[in-house]
Nucleic acid binder design. Structure first.
Lengths: 347, 347
DNA sequence: CTGAAAGCGCTAACAC
DNA sequence: GTGTTAGCGCTTTCAG
């Protein structure tokens, strides 16, 4: 700010002390007499002194702040995670800098180097779907920057991670459809390279296997842009409709896909669950108000943010980035709505 | 970062020049020979030099960054605004620091002083509903920090502002209900002290007046917590139900109120629009998928963010914070759904 | 055209 | 206990 704040120099000057004495008194150093401390602290309070964080950062090469890289802020899941992160960061006196990659690798590279340059003490990241080369994370991590990945983690970087029980969640969602007598279940996910995609696919397969339903690769669909473009989802839907063995149910791997797909169905005049039963991941808090109410897998987003931030701060404060990476894995919740209503077999 | 980056000193050393020459060469100063510039620039590129923004900030007392204070990130409207802000900030080479007040005055004070201390060059803000004393904004603004308010602006601070045409929007929403033969229209808003509340109320009144419908103050309800607590909305709904002249339609002043109210209705077994017709502000992008599809007033959130950021950057770069405050006012859009379907008068 | 030196606000040896 | 000094990385007078 061009705004002139009070500095240590001001205090030193006013009290006839040296800058270092003031500095030490402010940080309650053992070498300063109680009297002087009282004096300095008292005066500092009256003139409303706050240390200049920029100067501190420059000196200390750290900033008591953590950086966050998410694909997109305007997303129910990520914004809830951010709230979780902020809640522990605030408790622990850390500042949070939020950046979004907008799902591009370039954005992600810019973000992480921006943050590193800004002396964040550590980073929380969920990778963009476009990213295949993770060296921007690797390099910084190797140089000692603590990084905790969440949700969309990168397995090749040996670091802490917080995820949801993806396999189990997808398994439960798919099994729920199977129990409700759906048999031809299509799987729609975003970019196939994402950790969450492969894990959720695994859970889907597991359920099929367990229920003795043969795997049909025609049922597997990817939207590399995660359903951000309407056309992308629409073309998947149309291709499903044109298949000889048209699916009777759909498993959707992410938030945006779930709602985009529902919109497509509506536009094409399809009925849910009559034409397709739907189960999808979603962290929107209004899936119960939709038409029909959606059966969703909800991630404990806020808690994930909290855990990730706690892991990160622990890593920062113990400086042991190298070894014993912790992986926390939280359960998702299956919330049953009308979009997956049991099918009557009588027909 | 503990991460050691290359500095001007490294370049100077490697090239046998002085730090100042390198610094000047990098900023393309006229006093440096072309040859030296080539040399420095070339070398800087090979070692991948980036100026340390912290050092620059300390020196320059500005940071090529702008701060954002919103009540809450996990909100469709605000997250869209943030995207708009980022889009112009990135274009213009500014970094965005996002903070949330979580609707508390204390959080807001912390945020804005945090940002000022971090040498942001200017701020974008939408005030918390709890805030009544705006001196934290006033003080910084007087000291020369450019501030642009958006959506929830504060009129007593003489500064730039971007809003939606609140009066007109609320008027259109209410008029739409009146046209559809609803006559007893309740108004539900959040904190009555907010700019958006008073303006939207004004529009509501205007419509009533124009359609010759008498104003009934029993129809006016405030949720000081903006519908973040379910009980708050439920108690409003129950009080409406208990009234002698029960309303036949509801105008909802914000996003969260709109969806919370719908949820309450559902829980109490009420039918929309039969029991109540609904029109509300909302920037959720799935109001068309709800049951029933909602008639909403949608704000051009992304564009508001863009405009606000452009105003701010202009203010920063021209340093004229004092005079000629610009107020931009964008139209909202009425999107008609089933929640306000015309009532048959036959009954 | 280039260099030396001071200083942004703060901390931390190293004196006394 | 307290002061002096140097330095984090950078810009910017002021000298040459």
């Amino acid at each position: 700010m061009r705004i002139e704040a009070t500095t240590i120099k001001d205090i030193a000057h006013a009290l006839g002390l040296s800058k270092s004495t003031v500095s030490r008194a402010l940080r309650d150093s053992y070498e300063i007499s109680d009297m002087t401390k009282q004096l300095v602290l008292g005066y500092a309070k009256t003139i409303n002194y706050t240390p200049n964080p920029i100067a501190v950062s420059l000196k200390a090469r750290k900033s008591k702040s953590i950086g966050v890289v998410v694909p997109e802020i305007a997303d129910s899941f990520f914004s809830q995670v951010i709230n979780g992160i902020e809640s522990v960061a605030n408790e622990k006196g850390y500042t949070v800098m939020i950046t979004q990659s907008l799902e591009t690798e370039e954005g992600e590279i810019n973000n992480i180097s921006f943050l590193a340059l800004r002396s964040v003490d550590g980073c929380l990241a969920s990778v963009s779907e476009e990213t295949n080369d993770f060296s921007h994370f690797c390099d910084l991590h190797k140089k000692g920057l603590p990084i905790v990945f969440f949700d969309r983690i990168v397995e090749c970087v040996q670091s802490h991670a917080v995820t949801v029980e993806n396999v189990q969640a997808a398994y439960e969602g798919t099994a729920h459809l199977l129990k409700n007598n759906y048999r031809k279940i299509a799987f729609i996910a975003n970019a196939p390279n994402l950790y969450i995609t492969t894990k959720r696919f695994e859970g889907y397969l597991k359920a099929l296997r367990e229920y003795g339903v043969p795997y049909d690769e025609n049922m597997i669909n990817y939207c590399p842009h995660g359903g951000r473009y309407y056309e992308e989802v629409e073309s998947v839907l149309k291709s499903l409709l044109s298949k000889q063995h048209r699916p009777d149910a759909i498993f959707l791997s992410t938030d945006k896909l779930t709602t985009s797909f529902l919109r497509c169905c509506k536009n094409l005049g399809l009925k849910i669950p009559e034409d397709f039963a739907l189960v999808g991941f979603s962290n929107l808090d209004i899936t119960d108000l939709m038409q029909p109410s959606l059966t969703v897998l909800r991630q404990p987003a806020f808690e994930m943010g909290r855990r990730a931030a706690m892991l990160l701060i622990k890593a920062i404060e113990t400086k042991r980035t190298d070894i014993d990476c912790e992986n926390e894995c939280l359960p998702a919740q299956l919330i049953i709505g009308d979009s997956s209503k049991a099918r009557c077999l009588a027909s």
